[in-house]
């Protein structure tokens, strides 16, 4: 009996190691989105690899490289799904999911959330990510879990969630700024400075994207 128990335990440990290792193998995961691939940060990565591959003799364009990678990634994810299927109940019930895509690439075109209220004819900035003065609802918005949300909201696939998030915040703004008539959320998207540009004192330049305005006056 003891011998059987020892063998079963050894089998279980081996299966556990196999399950977690298979799931930890590199995979694009949530990055499988065409709109995400069109982001300037991702496009710049494709272009950098295209230049390198061209140097190594591969003749192709950035668009062709992207197509090939998309096809490869889609096939890979399909096969990965098949391989992982028998282990799914284990991942689910034992909490042994493995997705270690941490800082896989710097986001060269980050987006900084800004929230404003309209008082009279003027917009007033009330929250800006990592700003020392515009700190409205920073207790919520600066928490690491909400930072994670805001990071995702600047990506296209999360547009619907972003809208709901803004509408919820607008309710808080209506309470906190009774004089305000509108609430606006938008991202300032810019390219991060090179070290040389930062040392030269340049400021990052960009543009506002994903702007959503919510009226704070109840509809008649």
């Amino acid at each position: 009996m003891e011998r059987l128990k020892a063998n079963l335990l050894a089998l279980f440990v081996a299966a556990h190691l196999l399950a977690i290792t298979l799931q930890a193998l590199p995979a694009p995961g949530g990055g499988m989105s065409r709109s995400t691939w069109k982001d300037p940060t991702v496009q710049a990565e494709f272009d950098a690899w295209r230049v390198r591959l061209n140097g190594w003799g591969w003749e192709g364009t950035t668009a062709e490289l992207e197509e090939r990678l998309w096809d490869f990634a889609r096939d890979f994810m399909d096969r990965r799904d098949q391989v992982l299927t028998p282990f799914r109940p284990y991942y689910l019930h034992a909490g042994t999911t493995q997705a270690w895509r941490m800082f896989v690439a710097p986001h060269r075109f980050p987006a900084r959330l800004e929230l404003e209220v309209k008082e009279g004819d003027d917009w007033r900035l009330v929250y800006k990510e990592r700003d020392a003065e515009a700190t409205w609802r920073a207790r919520w918005l600066d928490h690491d879990r909400v930072r994670s949300l805001i990071f995702r909201f600047s990506w296209r696939p999360y547009r619907k969630q972003y809208e709901l998030f803004v509408r919820r915040l607008a309710k808080e703004a209506a309470l906190d700024f009774p004089e305000a008539t509108s609430f606006r959320a938008r991202f300032y998207k810019y390219q991060t400075l090179t070290p040389e540009a930062a040392r030269a004192g340049e400021a990052p330049s960009g543009r506002y994207v994903e702007s959503i305005t919510v009226s704070l006056r109840s509809t008649p």
Partner: peptide, 27 residues
């Protein structure tokens, strides 16, 4: 996580500049 760091910036080709640029992200 190391095997998934396929970005140009993590490699010698990108001048090992990943950490610098990651630290510039406001998130």
């Amino acid at each position: 996580t190391g095997a998934q760091k396929v970005s140009n910036y993590w490699t010698p080709f990108g001048g090992f500049s990943a950490l610098y640029y990651i630290l510039q992200q406001p998130t």
